[in-house]
Design a protein around this nucleic acid. Structure first.
Length: 930
RNA sequence: GCGAGAAUAUCUAAGUGGCCAACAGAGGCGGACUCAAGAUCCGUUCCCGUAGGGGUUCGCAGGUUCGACUCCUGCUUCUCGCACCA
């Protein structure tokens, strides 16, 4: 194998071998820097989107390591929760779609796939895959600390954490309505839904109408409209059931009976009654008196109780249904009873709206929108009539609901706002009230305040996310924190339940600090007292393995708190905020152990479309590394956008990134052994290099990987091109270039560490670039004058070229005419003037200036414009310490003649003998092409 | 609907009051090298222009200012989140 050849995969192999244990990090005399990422849930193969999530922190880790910090970058795997349980079931059941995903897209070998009927096998398989691919990407992780969240030791740690949450009063027990599948006998999450994932659980009030000695309940979101009820609707084609609900006789639809049984009621079916038999019967309610049941086939037995109360004055559906009956000559004596006054909707809002829209019948597609419109208008602007209390609707609604619940037998019923809601198993999902449901009381204002205080002290990147965090804290309600299915740690106060997966991954960053050491202790010995000692320093008697515990305590104190946590932005509204809540409790009163900062990422796109495993729109990270190389993948992901912006993966763009790395490699190989004597231009090059060092460092300090690459790669490359152009023909670079290579390799090493290691070996011989010192800007080498001179020269060359292009003649000679001294003085005066309007007058007061008359005023005006156009980094130095333009051009004469292939004359403007020469200005000589 | 962001030339994208016709990269076009291709290098890439200039631009419509890509108001479109799920 030829070492001089650019062969990324060879570099990778070579570096991998040296890195095997290199990034295992232990406490040392150095100052620490601890970063971590939200750990992955390994239920499938990694795609390039995952790649960036872990490569950004790796670049940061490598940067700080080179800056001389003791860096900790650990990784673990989150395997608790329900998804893999579902996946394993589906695979066991032979579900084609799932099997295809795992067999074809993730390319799981057949014999391995067979084992996927066991959930733990899936996550263990992919955790191993993750580690393999992460390593292939060059992630500088301390793998000794790896764990998975069902390790017994980890479970002991979770139990300890929860003990503190519980003792602080943050863990409470309650009842909770959930989506529930009666076939699976389990709550149903979003991803388990076939249909209706947007459906919300709505709390309805059942208005209880008396029918003989039984109740007929009608569900409503608008209990205040009870005063306007003119009738009930029953579906004559439906068979209703008579039930005993908590011992009381009710009449509801069959579906409703099943639903109510799931919502804290005992339900016993005692008989049936046809809908048609209910029609024309009388019912009554204390707030609306006696009314009649009317027939309506639009009544859906699967919606709430299956019976509907009719308020034709305010509900368009009711209004039309009644109108239709009346047009058929029936129930002519029923009149809509308005009860809400709302601006702009006439006396009877439903009638007004229906007639205005010209709606002919119930089937009109605009009915839903119309209903919504009236509902919103009445809620926001409506007021009840004086005889009903005169309150705004938004107040009256709650008042009436409360009154009904307290005095008129109303109960609550939960139902979805959108239907159908269908489980993956095909069954209709219902709402069930779960008891023995435990919550984390994120609603607690005192706890929220602790989090807000902490957020104020945290560094958030990018700063715009701060507002989103603040809003999230305000908005968080109690979080159901126990589950009945899935993998996880048993809930200590009810061991039939598990701790919910988001709730068990909130302080594990502390666990990383001791993860490799705690493996040596039998998990049975890990009582809460042990963790109290390790993390909180609380001493107690009979602690086991005291020596080991002391070492852990020491290591924890060395690393903690973490400096930065990295995660994608979709976790702001849960995980990233939860972890602050939990830290606030577990480490209460220990400000010095609270998280210091967070960096939030954007999302990934593939060829402009969202990456999605289920849609097959993914590019596996491993394939990317194989096809393009680890360094290429890294550099592309870091360079195409800043971490918090969304990025788009396109293979054709990645390919050109690979060429760039190769170009870098070849350039370094060409110039690293140059031995020539330094020229003036070398001073310029080394001066520019200092600027790139400073800017790259600043960018990486701020996590701007793209900006850093711009400086470290393209900035230096562009300078080198100019350098080579400026070099005399017979010269191919000075020995200064070796230093430049050394700096350049190190600046790029965090991004392309494989190529970096290879080149570093060739240059420095010993040691790893991963631990080489980060380049420091050397102020001694900054040469303002050299930079200014080159700027002048480059601008002049540019001007000559643009003139040449326009006039399209073959020049015979080029004259560069330099501005006279007095113009330089004018330049200085104007540049320093505070008032640009009066400065020209000031200048013209001068005796010598006045002598020049018109020429001086014109020059002053042109110079004013010029100063506006020049960047401050030119004007400033020019004022402080002007350059000798004559000398600059004389020194570059050879270069200019070589560039343009003609004789170059450099003369003072006065001596040029040409009108054009008089337009010469400071930093902008007149150019005369002949 | 609610909350948080975003909109710049063919694409990615820098740019928070005058350094801006707008950094950089990619792509396109032209040229050099080459038998040729690739790589590399040079030029060009809003419109006009035989002298370094002028014109029209930064989602749309207004406003503030001597001056706006940059600040304010309204609108449109897109992304993320809206939970018991990782």
């Amino acid at each position: 194998m030829q070492v001089s050849q650019f062969d990324l995969s060879a570099f990778e192999e070579e570096a991998q071998e040296k890195w095997t244990h290199a990034f295992e990090s232990n406490p040392s005399r150095l100052e620490k820097f601890y970063i971590n990422v939200a750990f992955p849930y390994p239920s499938g193969a990694m795609h390039v989107g995952h790649g960036r999530t872990y490569i950004v922190p790796d670049v940061v880790a490598r940067f700080w390591r080179m800056k001389g910090r003791q860096v900790l970058f650990p990784m673990a795997f989150h395997v608790t929760g329900a998804p893999v349980v579902g996946i394993s079931k589906r695979i066991a059941a032979g579900d084609e779609k799932t099997i295809r995903l795992y067999r074809d897209l993730y390319r799981v070998p057949g014999n391995v796939l067979e084992g996927f009927t066991e959930p733990l096998t899936i996550v263990k398989h992919f955790a191993a895959e993750y580690q393999r691919v992460m390593t292939a990407c060059g992630l500088s992780i301390d793998w000794r600390r790896r764990f998975i969240t069902v390790d017994p030791t980890y479970s002991r740690f979770i139990e300890w954490q929860w003990k503190h949450l519980y003792e602080a009063g943050h863990v409470i027990k309650g009842a909770h309505p959930v989506r529930y599948c009666t076939v699976d006998d389990n709550p149903v999450g979003d991803h388990d839904l076939l249909e209706g994932d947007k459906a919300e659980v709505i709390k309805f009030t059942l208005v209880m109408f008396r029918y003989g000695d039984a109740f007929i309940p009608c569900a409503t979101l608008r209990p205040e409209t009870i005063h306007g009820v003119t009738n009930l609707w029953a579906n004559p084609t439906v068979t209703y059931v008579k039930i005993l609900l908590d011992g009381k006789p009710w009449i509801v639809s069959k579906e409703a009976a099943e639903k109510l049984a799931l919502q804290d009621h005992t339900v016993e079916i005692t008989g049936e009654i046809k809908g048609s038999d209910l029609v024309d019967k009388k019912v009554s309610h204390p707030l609306c008196g006696e009314i009649t049941i009317l027939p309506a086939e639009f009544v859906d037995p699967d919606m709430a109780s299956g019976m509907v109360m009719s308020v034709p004055a305010h509900a368009p559906f009711d209004y039309i249904a009644l109108r239709d009956l009346q047009q058929a000559g029936k129930y002519k004596d029923i009149k809509p009873i308005p009860l809400i006054k709302v601006e702009g909707y006439g006396e009877v809002p439903a009638q007004f709206a229906v007639e205005k829209a010209g709606i002919a019948n119930q089937m009109d597609s605009r009915m839903d929108a119309l209903t919504q419109e009236i509902y919103s208008a009445e809620f926001s602007k409506g007021k009840l009539f004086e005889k009903y209390g005169g309150k705004p609707v938004r107040v009256a609604r709650d008042d009436v609901a409360l009154l009904m619940t307290e005095k008129y037998d109303s109960v609550v019923m939960y139902e979805f706002d959108v239907r159908p809601v269908v489980c993956r198993c095909g069954n209709k999902v219902k709402v069930k009230i779960l008891h023995d449901q435990w919550f984390l009381k994120y609603s607690d204002p005192a706890w929220k305040q602790q989090v807000k205080d902490q957020l104020k002290d945290m560094a958030l990147v990018p700063p715009e996310v701060r507002l989103e965090f603040d809003r999230t804290v305000d908005w968080l309600k109690d979080w159901a924190c126990t589950r009945r299915v899935g993998l996880g740690t048993r809930f200590p106060w009810d061991t039939t339940q598990l701790i919910e997966p988001l709730s068990d991954s909130t302080v594990y960053m502390a666990y990383y600090t001791i993860a490799h050491r705690i493996k040596e202790i039998d998990s049975k010995l890990l009582t809460p007292e042990v963790f109290d000692y390790i993390f909180l320093g609380k001493k107690s008697d009979d602690l086991p393995e005291k020596k080991k515990l002391d070492a852990m305590r020491e290591e924890f104190l060395y690393w903690y708190p973490y400096d930065f946590r990295f995660s994608a932005k979709d976790l702001i509204s849960n995980h990233l905020t939860f972890q602050i809540f939990h830290h606030a409790t577990v480490f209460e009163g220990q400000k010095n152990l609270m998280p210091k900062g967070m960096v939030v990422f954007g999302m990934g796109l593939l060829n402009g479309a969202k990456m999605s495993s289920s849609k097959g729109n993914v590019f596996l990270l491993e394939d990317a590394v194989k096809e393009f190389g680890g360094d290429t993948v890294r550099m592309f992901l870091m360079g195409s956008a800043e971490p918090w912006q969304d990025f788009d993966w396109r293979n054709e763009l990645v390919l050109s990134t690979k060429k760039q790395i190769e170009r870098f490699y070849n350039t370094v190989m060409e110039i690293k052994d140059a031995t020539g004597e330094p020229h003036d231009i070398d001073r310029w090059l080394m001066s520019r290099l200092q600027l790139h060092i400073a800017k790259t460092t600043e960018a990486l300090d701020n996590f701007q990987t793209r900006q850093a690459l711009q400086e470290a790669y393209f900035g230096i490359e562009t300078d080198l091109k100019w350098y080579h152009r400026r070099l005399p023909k017979d010269c191919d670079g000075s020995r200064e270039l070796r230093e430049l290579c050394s700096v350049w390799i190190r600046l790029l090493a965090p991004f392309i560490p494989f190529t970096g290691e290879h080149l570093w070996k060739g240059l420095a011989g010993e040691g790893l670039v991963s631990f080489a010192p980060w380049p420091k800007m050397d102020a001694q080498q900054v040469n303002e004058k050299a930079e200014l001179s080159e700027e002048l020269l480059a601008r002049t060359v540019e001007d000559v070229e643009s003139i040449k292009k326009l006039i399209q003649i073959t020049p015979r000679a080029i004259t560069i005419a330099l501005a006279p001294q007095w113009k330089h003085e004018v330049f200085r005066t104007i540049a320093q003037a505070s008032d640009k309007n009066t400065v020209i007058k000031e200048i013209m007061k001068d005796e010598n200036m006045r002598k020049r008359g018109r020429e001086a005023t014109d020059a002053a005006k042109q110079i004013t414009t010029l100063i506006h156009r020049l960047p401050p980094y030119v004007v400033g130095p020019l004022v402080r310490d002007p350059i000798n333009e004559q000398a600059v051009f004389e020194a570059a004469k050879g270069f200019l003649e070589q560039e343009f292939g003609v004789a170059i004359h450099i003369v003072p403007a006065e001596d040029a003998g040409q009108v054009k020469a008089l337009t010469a200005l400071p930093f902008k000589p007149a150019i005369i092409i002949e």
